[in-house]
Amino acid sequence: MRVGSIAVSGHAEASMADRDFMIARAFDAEGAAILYPRKATRRRRSVLPGFGLSLGFTIVYLSLIVLIPLSAAFIKTATLTWPAFVDIVTAPRVVASYRLTFGASFGAAAINTVFGLLVAWVLVRYRFPGRRLADALVDLPFALPTAVAGIALTGLFAANGWIGSLLDPLGIKVAFTPLGVLVALTFIGLPFVVRTVQPVLEELPRELEEAAATLGASRWSIFRRVIFPIVLPALITGFALAFARAIGEYGSVIFIAGNMPMVSEITPLVIITKLEQYDYNGATAVAVVMLVVSFVLLLAINALQAWTRRRQGAQA
């Protein structure tokens, strides 16, 4: 998921007709009303070609690749009776997997919220050697195949690994435990908060802080009362993006998790296990639960991003 999308400028929808109207109105308000009587309500026909072709292709391709295949999951599940469906999706092993998947995803997103804000702050505000390298490396989890991340993290955090051997004497076991799931999901979600917060911090007017400082506010209360409220929408959006990505994650987790049923088995793995046992109904029922959660999250994220954009727009 790409974050920090480009803000759509106000004139995106404005065409030449709009401009003519505005110019006419600027010179002569009444005249403009006469020349462009139904400006506000009339739907303009664009002079540009290719609308039917491009929209038609878009809808056909979207339906063939995404919508029809996704509907297959719901249609398949609809053949189950309601009690049978509930039985499958509330079986103890499945419920244990939800608890791990959602718990670890929440934890990882929370870790990324704290450290993501810190990393974004450091990258935007300070100059230090290696800053540009660190900045470029933040996107690594987007670019590195998840299986590679999985085996690398497992090797690092195994009891004899570079990091695992430091934690082992302290009695902390990461690889092949639920803690390993948390580590993998933290890796996967790392770029989201950094990349949503970074542009907001970059555009934060320094005068605000200077004004607060002149008025006698301490550095901490400036952060808490001036900076934090401004970055909060971006922070929540980043959290939601990282969380949404984490609940579906498979590749980076299965190597480090240990995959013990009831203990360290994530929900996507439950789906795969059922599929390998040719339990298509079971796999699909659990998948539908995950899909519904994902869709709700997607809508929530869209609303959050609209909110962030509005806040940024109001500021500028």
Binding site: L70, A72, I271, T284, A287, L299
Partner: peptide, 28 residues
């Protein structure tokens, strides 16, 4: 339409595989 285009990012990769098995698999 824009939201629907984003859908595949919201779907777990495992489910992305599963739906094609449901359509083109032996029992699909």
């Amino acid at each position: 339409l824009i939201t629907l285009i984003d859908l595949p990012f919201a779907v777990s990769p495992v489910i992305a595989g599963l739906i094609y098995v449901l359509i083109f698999g032996l029992q699909g």
